[in-house]
Design a protein around this nucleic acid. Sequence first.
DNA 1: ACCTGAACACCGTTCAAGT
DNA 2: ACCTGAACACCGTTCAAGT
Lengths: 219, 219
Amino acid sequence: MARRSDSLSRDRIVAAAIEVLDAAGESGLTFRVLSERLATGPGAIYWHVANKGELLAAATDAVVVAALTEEPASGSPQDRLRAVALGLFDAVDEHPWMAAQLSAGAWQAGGPRIVEAVGRQVRALGVPPRDWFVTATVLVQYILGAAAQNAANARSAGPDTSREEMLDAMATRWEALDPQEWSFTRTVGDQMRHHDDRDQFVAGIDIAVAGIAALYPAS
Amino acid sequence: MARRSDSLSRDRIVAAAIEVLDAAGESGLTFRVLSERLATGPGAIYWHVANKGELLAAATDAVVVAALTEEPASGSPQDRLRAVALGLFDAVDEHPWMAAQLSAGAWQAGGPRIVEAVGRQVRALGVPPRDWFVTATVLVQYILGAAAQNAANARSAGPDTSREEMLDAMATRWEALDPQEWSFTRTVGDQMRHHDDRDQFVAGIDIAVAGIAALYPAS
DNA sequence: ACCTGAACACCGTTCAAGT
DNA sequence: ACCTGAACACCGTTCAAGT
């Protein structure tokens, strides 16, 4: 018996949730809004999904799967690590509501998938097996943490002020700080004003790769 | 005119909020609960604090300030960087509700303070001035991201199951994954089972420090 | 098995009114 | 200037009742 194509299913609910989240953010995802879009009552959703947390986790997982399957299998381990990392970075940038889910850690939501994709490059990089877990986890924590923070920054600008205006305002504030108490922050205001988020993110990957190469020579 | 010591003030509100957050988590912090503890009405709080978001940011900032002032000023830059990082890590571990705030990024809540504390060590490490901002920001993103994910993990165990039980259950699940699709994750299950969170966190700092040393020799 | 939709027990926030 | 507390417009979630 083929199911009516417009009947409810977990997948349809998750897909609709992603659309609502992209359009209105996490606070905009409501069981009432969602059930209206799906032409049902709020209670119907609970037959397929346990609660809002599970729905958010499922939505995150779906986006992570999509981001990781785009990954190309060519190039050096370094290049592929960068590609995996940037794929996740861009996914979080496009779906900022994922940030809160992903900072819930590597063993939730899309966690294991990310560990697998990153870990394969760690292995290819020549890290000795006994340090696979730590190394992969450190990279995953950096990737997810940086992506989450970046998405939050982008969102905090709001639709009214541009990224440039926000950065400029903040840089100006940093530059006006007391030179004694803020001797470092004060001097990097201008670098913040002109930085590129993606370049900054990749710089972190490159530091990690350099560190891994230094800690595990030979190869 | 000295104010009555039991009158409301922003500081008293923030202090009470931290107590409630520590005891009941973010979802336990309610304007009703908070006003009851402060012996007022919910509306009174709004005279001192704009909204719940501002209250959470203020609470986070207060904890960050406390965590950073404990920092000792002795030792090598590497040691001091580790000390700053661990101070923040432990603070987030004790106050897990901070995680969500901190993954909102380095330029919110306690952000600049953290940039300052970390940046000073970056400077002392001999990183050339033109790369101060990127390097410090990468470290801050790792520190906050890793701390947030760790706190979320610790919390996800719940009061019923112990950390060990949770790790063991998850490791067993990883080890049972399909060897083709999960060739990496599968093999690190046992390392996950026996890892130490703090050591794992410090390993990330050490990778970054090694990377910085490799990228900027001389000194 | 799956869906309906009213109802419950909450929330954050506002605001007229008080002192 | 600061506080009160009722009221508003929501939420997530449940559950008897339907098909």
